[in-house]
Each structure stands twice: as C-alpha cells, then as structure tokens.
Design a protein around this nucleic acid. Structure first.
Lengths: 170, 170
DNA sequence: CCATTTGGTCTGATGATCGAACTGCAGCAC
DNA sequence: GTGCTGCAGTTCGATCATCAGACCAAATGG
C-alpha cells in the first residue's frame, strides 16, 4: 500500500475506513457520485483534479467495491451498496463543515422527498426517519456562492434534483 | 495552504471540512483525543507517526480551534467544543469501517453509561438518545485483536473507560 | 470514413511524508 | 543549586505522492 493509505499497525475500524476514503480527493469524488456525477470528464471538470489522480482513485474505489463501472462504451461510475452505506458518515461530516464555516446559512439543503427537510443528524424533521439517499432531494441553500464555480457540471447540479439521479450535462 | 489541504475552488461544506480533517493522520489523532490521549509522546507511540508530522498536525488543529493546548509544563491537548462536535461524523465513519472490515464483530464497543449500547446510528439502543462523548464508555469488542499493538497506550486504552477521560500511562 | 470528444497514460517538477539523529526544556533526585 | 532522565519538539536527506501539461488510443458523431 502506498504512502497515503497505510495505517497497517492500527487495530481500529476508523483506520480501516480511512485507508479507503482517507486519501485526498476520494471523499469529494464520492460526494459527486451521490450528487449524480458519473463520468470521468465530469468528475474532472467539477473537481479540478489531475487526470492521473482521478484515474487512480476511481480504480481504487472500484477495486474496493465502493463503485461499479457500468456502460458498454464510455464507462460510468456508480455507487455500490457499500458505497451507499457511506451516506450517514458523509452527511455528518458535511453538516460539521457547514456549521463551522457557514453557520446558519447552509451551502446546500437536503430534503426528504414529499416530506420535510433533513436535520443535522440526517433525520427528516417532519417524519423522523433517516431517508435513503435515493429519497433525498438536494438544492442550493442560502450559503451557496454561485460565483465560485461556473463549469457545466456545477450549473447542472444547482438545479434541485434527487441524489444518485444521473446529472445530464451534455 | 499546502498540498494536502487545499480544495479552494469548491463551494462545498464537505471540502471545507476536509481541509481540516482530511489530511493523513488528523482523524486518527482526533480519535485518540476522544479516547483520552493527551500528550505528544502518547500520540506518537500509539500512532507510529513521525514526530515532525505529529507536531505539524497538532499545531494545525490548535490553530483551527479543534484542540486546546493546556497544562503549565509539558503541554496537553484537549478537544474544544468544535472538536467535540465532530463526534457524530467520526462515529459514523467508524461504524462504516467496522461493518465493512469486521462485520458482526466490532473492534470496539460503545455504551451509553448506565443505560445501553450504542447502535450504528450513534443512538442508545435502550433510551434512544444520542449521548455526548462524555457519557459514552468504550471497551474492546469481539473483533479486537490484542496482538496487533502492545505499546503502553494501547494497553491502557483496553481497559473500559469513558471517552475524554485522560488515560494514565505513566 | 474522418474529426472530435472521451478516457485515459506518461513525464518532469514540486510538495508531503518518512525515519533517524539532534536540541533544548521540564521535572525529579540529590 | 547540579546532574540526570525523559519529553517535546526541530532538522535533515531520502522516498513517495501530486501536479500541470503533453501525449495517445478508443469511442462517438457526422
């Protein structure tokens, strides 16, 4: 295992988790997957990441079973069940970042479809359940800054849409 | 900002969060803080981390307000409120790692003191609340492997104890 | 079939991490 | 106080990861 991913001598589940999702860019790639990004060039444009690193990370995520490569021609990358299971952790981190850097004005809002908004703990404030990603709609919040990015993927992601639903750029 | 921490052109709370806790070792240092580790050499022995990186990380965590340096002589590092607020995200990641790499046999068990065990969502399975770290007791679980580490900090941490309570090695 | 886009790989430069050696305090025994 | 034993870092050269940009082959569009 290369330098960025090896916590071999730790008997800890957090270390095991970080060996996969603890590398630079990996969490942001997975966030994009939840938001509906699926193709190599869309990740690349949206993340401003070097192609070499993106290719390495996607391969690693497929090898570790978090992503699945689909499509007959140009590949698409799609979350597996193991990848989807990361949602609670990702949402918790996201909320923490929001509260620290943009208190009171979240950059993105998450809503239990046909029901109510999600609270900081990922549960619906109306019905109380913690919805699956596929039952969550994302839309820009009051803290969003539309001037930061203007690539086509960012523009497409600013329209309210369900998580996991492929975003159409072309 | 150095290489490992710069996601400047992302208007996303996850990116903001990862600029702080997304660097190699940082999450493991914070995990140790929750478990009660407080001193430089204890982190170093427990994590097998280079002193240079440990010093850099601790400084960054203090500068970002997640840790506080206390003590008149040899410094101790202690979580601030901002650092404590990371607990739900850390617990969620930990659970994900446990389920993937050690299903059915968690490496560590967490218990709402005087009440019941914590479920995967961090809520007490008996009373239903999501306890503060200071009301949680950690102890080794069936998936723990005591042969992996035998440094004094690991030994001390194998005794059941409350989170945040300073672990006594000396 | 040809042109363009897509999905990569390769390369040299730069930055981060490593282990080991070194320094300068803190706390203790005397 | 003086000396001693750790503790908390800093410094160093070597190694490894990441970067931007050039290159290339396969897939798609016309």
């Amino acid at each position: 295992m290369p330098l960025g991913t090896d916590y071999a001598k730790q008997d800890c589940s957090l270390a095991r988790a970080l060996e996969i999702v603890g590398e630079r860019w990996t969490m942001l790639i997975l966030r994009d997957c939840f938001l509906g990004v699926r193709r190599f060039s869309d990740f690349q444009v949206h993340l401003d990441i070097s192609r070499a690193v993106l290719a390495t990370r996607l391969d690693a995520l497929v090898a570790d079973g978090l992503l699945r490569r689909t499509g007959s021609g140009h590949p698409e990358y799609e979350l597996t069940d193991d990848g989807l299971a990361l949602w609670p952790a990702m949402f918790a981190l996201l909320q923490w970042g929001d509260q620290r850097t943009s208190p009171g004005a979240p950059r993105r809002l998450y809503r239990h479809v046909e029901c109510g908004d999600l609270g900081v703990d990922g549960h619906c404030t109306t019905c109380g359940v913690a919805p699956e990603p596929s039952d969550i709609e994302a839309r820009p919040g009051p803290g969003a800054d539309p001037t930061v990015r203007d690539d086509p993927v960012s523009l497409a992601l600013r329209r309210p849409h369900r998580l996991l639903e492929p975003v159409s750029v072309r």
